[in-house]
Amino acid sequence: MSGYTEGIIILLCINAIAAMGVSVLTGFTGIFSLGHAGYMAVGAYTTAILTVEYGVHYIPAILLGGAMAMVIAYVIGVPTLKLMGDYYAIASIGLGEAIRLILENWQSVTRGARGYPGIEGYTTLYVSLAFFAVMAFGMFNLINSRFGRAFKACRDDYIAASLLGFNTARYRILSLVISAFYCGVAGALLGGFLSFIQPIMFDMIKSTELTSVVVFGGLGSMSGTLLGASIITLVTELFRPISQYRMLIYGAILVLIMVIRPEGIMGQYELGPRLFRRLKDKFSFRNRDNSEGRSS
């Protein structure tokens, strides 16, 4: 396998992990965040500092990176997740930007805006595939469990959810913390892939991209999220030669999806028996309509 293909596969894994993180929060719990690049940054910097300064092995360091993102998410999530809708979205921009600004200004630890070089290239093909496989397994299991149903209940109607005995505040936090862990690990893997990280890599544009991938795939569909992440990553690579048009096309696609198919590629359905059943129903309905049409 050529180095180029390998690089793309690694990038696919990293983007997919981060997108799954945003998906559980935005697609399944209905919390719209525009600051998740901040959690990637926390994961990336924690892991970089642990491996470079303290010589920690990369596997525990990556996990600690994810854990650090969780801790930060918990600390800022408990008070701010009381906010609903657009208020949280704007607050999350503030949170994400605040994380970036702190990294830029905390020179002694993060080496500031010019970036953190010399990170060991621990994110090999197999490491990224292994992380992706384990984390995807966990995520799909989770959404197919009582927790997934609870998240969706909070998303669809938080008043009804709390009157079915769900402590909605607790589930919102849980969802945020899980999503921060995924983004933290993705950030840590990105650091090990590029061997260099810089606060500006984790700005609001990156956050927007994460959220758009999830919307593109279909809010409330985890397989849609993976499909969305793959398509966006590959298209981004495809348009690299004409990079100035890349973002333009990307923005236009985002608008077009909302105009043409706002529910995303997969709607809220997963690749699986349920989608199949739905398609079958649709098809049989159409047949029935046709036969009725003929008989009358």
């Binding site: 969706k152 209940a153 669809d156 109607d157 008043i159 009804a160 709390s162 009157l163 079915l164 005995g165 769900f166 402590n167 909605t168 409330g220 809220q268």
Partner: peptide
Amino acid sequence: KSYQVIRKGVARTFQNLRLFQRS
């Protein structure tokens, strides 16, 4: 809070239905 009352053994329905429509 609502969820605490529910956990004590109360359940209710709503005047303007609050089902999870898409589920």
